[in-house]
């Protein structure tokens, strides 16, 4: 039960993008087309899940026993950077068009605060191994959800008659704000 609560909380109620405002960069950058938004969500979810597992192991098996908690930032970033490299190579091998459409935002997952934030929050809340795994999957699902909703809206927006002053970045910001407002509605769910 606890695990389900953690999942729902990470995915919807405390959605990383729309409630905690982490990972805004790809949220705005890669939400122009639905298919690339889905793949970006997948890539981030993958990195998040593996990061959560590996950082949990590093933190609890290496850093805590030797009182080296101060090194958590360095070691977490190390893990994230390596994983992103791996994902980048993999996507490039499997699908070159996808690699091109993600562009600079793929290597930028390294500096995506959602992922480092996830690892640090897991430590902060003292999650067990299972809990932090579920938490990371939930966070990834929430990130993908936010990206997909945004991309869906922006694809529709291409056909909409937006006033000239609001075209481009402005309307994107307004929509992101409205989405965040909408997600506030989930606050009472848990």
């Amino acid at each position: 039960m606890n695990l389900i609560v953690i999942f729902i909380s990470a995915a919807i109620v405390n959605n990383f993008v729309l409630s905690q405002f982490l990972g805004i960069c790809p949220f705005v950058g890669v939400s122009k087309r639905l298919d690339s938004a889905v793949s970006m969500g997948m890539a981030v979810t993958f990195v998040m899940t593996i990061t959560a597992v590996v950082t949990w192991l590093i933190y609890h098996l290496l850093l805590v026993p030797y009182n080296l908690e101060i090194l958590q930032y360095v070691s977490f970033i190390l893990v994230i950077a390596s994983l992103v490299q791996l994902v980048e190579m993999f996507i490039r091998k499997v699908s070159k068009p996808l690699y091109d459409s993600l562009g600079i935002f793929l290597p930028l997952i390294t500096t995506n605060c959602a992922i480092l934030g996830l690892a640090l929050i897991s430590v902060l809340r003292n999650y067990s191994f299972m809990e932090s795994l579920i938490y990371s999957i939930g966070a990834g699902a929430g990130f993908t959800l936010a990206l997909v909703i945004m991309a869906g809206i922006r694809e529709e927006l291409e056909l909409a008659d937006v006033p000239k002053q609001f075209q481009g970045a402005a309307i994107t910001m307004i929509i992101a704000g409205s989405l965040a407002l909408a997600f506030m509605g989930f606050a009472g769910l848990i």
Binding site: I58, L71, L78, V79, S82
Partner: peptide
């Protein structure tokens, strides 16, 4: 310990990436 630990983690990931680079 911190030197060894960080170096070890770095080494493991570097090896993994090197292999992945060849494979992929």
């Amino acid at each position: 310990i911190s030197m060894g630990g960080m170096g070890g983690i770095g080494l493991i990931f570097a090896t993994g990436l090197a292999i992945a680079n060849k494979k992929l």
